[in-house]
Computed example of a mutant assay.
Amino acid sequence: MPESTTQDISYEVVHYHTEMPFNILNVHKRDLYRNGNLSTASDVLDHWHNELEIVYSYSNDGIYYTDGVPHHMEADQFIIVNSRSIHKVISNRTTPYDDMPETLTTVLQISDSFLRSFIPNFEDLYFLPVFKTSEERPAQIMKDLARYADGKALNKYENMRLIGLVHELLYYICRDDLTLKDMEMPKKDRKNADILRKIISYTEDNYRLDINEMSAAQHFGYSASYFSRFFRSNMGITYKEFLTRMRINSAKDALTGSSKSVLEIAMDCGFSDARGLINMFNKYEGITPLKYRKKYTTT
């Protein structure tokens, strides 16, 4: 894997748009190329997250890197990004804009805890990055899932249909694409990933409470300085920033899904007061909580 500084690698806190334990996103060419100009192509820089990511490509352009290994995108191809794998995407800069499909990829991000709940020995397994199959059904499932992308509101009972589609897709991928993790990952990397998973799980369970880097370090029996260095070197961000991002994502859901006041939401999400939420929301989202509510709440 090419050398990277920790500043080049960021941890992504995935925001789930619905009550489902997964996200469905469509990446459109208009999102990557301003005014249809190839010179303005946007790349997705090195990052990682706890979710399994399944990418389905509609074009033959672009390069997907997983843990430093390049995979050239092909039409009707799947790229699998394992939980905690570092990945990035280099956009196409050669194919004329008008020759590209409107949607370049559909991305499915699945909760790590959801996978571990029904895949035996999940922590010992590893998905191969390029999933190849001669069967048409997996591609059909991804195209079907694409219709529900970007937090589209679900009609009655559609949540059951979505869960079924994701389970069916995972059946094909698990059947044909799983291998043992110790054949793919060094022992040290596996150990660090397991520690990070525990820290992330602890934070997910307790971010609404009055926790911070010091209390998290004490919970795991580490000194504050060691915990700080370990977390930043493996995550690319500080624990404080990670905790804040998680609280902001929770506040987003409350802003669009309830009529609670900003103060009530701030207290529910672990902020000490409304001003703390407003300041952090402005910093990370570039908008105030009330403006966010007005912009994204559907009536």
Rank of each mutant, 00 (worst) to 15 (best):
D98E: 15
L52V: 00
N82I: 01
S91C: 05
P96W: 04
G68R: 08
V81P: 00
P120L: 02
I63C: 06
S83Y: 02
D43G: 07
V81R: 00
D99W: 12
H72V: 11
I86A: 06
R93P: 10
Y64M: 15
D112H: 13
N92R: 06
D61L: 09
I80V: 05
S57C: 09
I54P: 04
E102A: 11
V107F: 09
E53K: 10
N121T: 12
A41Y: 02
F114V: 04
T106S: 01
Y64V: 09
Y56L: 04
D98R: 15
D112W: 11
N92H: 05
Y64S: 12
K88D: 09
S85Y: 06
H71D: 08
T103S: 15
I90R: 06
V55D: 12
D99T: 15
P101V: 08
V55Y: 11
I80T: 03
D112N: 14
Y97K: 00
Y56E: 02
R93L: 08
D99R: 15
G68I: 10
L104W: 03
R93Q: 14
S42P: 02
Y58S: 03
V107A: 11
I80G: 03
S57M: 07
S91W: 05
N82H: 00
E74S: 13
I80P: 01
M73R: 13
L115K: 05
I79C: 08
M73E: 12
N60Y: 12
Y97C: 02
E102I: 06
L45A: 13
E102V: 10
V44E: 00
I90S: 05
I86K: 03
S111H: 13
I80C: 05
S117G: 06
I86T: 03
E102P: 11
F114E: 03
T105I: 12
S42E: 12
A75K: 08
H87E: 00
Y65M: 04
V55G: 08
V89E: 09
T95C: 05
H49I: 09
T106D: 00
P96R: 03
R84P: 07
Y58L: 00
E102W: 13
R84G: 10
G62Q: 03
S59G: 10
D76P: 01
E53G: 12
E53T: 15
T103I: 13
F114S: 03
I86F: 04
I80W: 05
Y56W: 02
D112I: 09
E74V: 11
Y56H: 05
I63E: 07
Y58F: 05
Y58D: 02
T94F: 11
V81Y: 01
Y56R: 06
F118N: 04
I119G: 06
R116Y: 07
V55T: 15
M73D: 10
E51H: 09
P120E: 02
I119Q: 07
E102R: 14
H71Y: 12
P101W: 08
D99A: 14
P120G: 05
H47E: 04
D98H: 14
D67C: 13
I54Y: 05
V55C: 10
Y65A: 01
Y65F: 02
I110G: 00
I79V: 10
S117C: 08
L45Q: 13
V55Q: 10
D43C: 06
V55E: 14
D99I: 15
R84W: 10
S85L: 05
D112Q: 12
D112Y: 15
G68S: 07
Y97H: 00
T95S: 02
Y58G: 02
S85T: 04
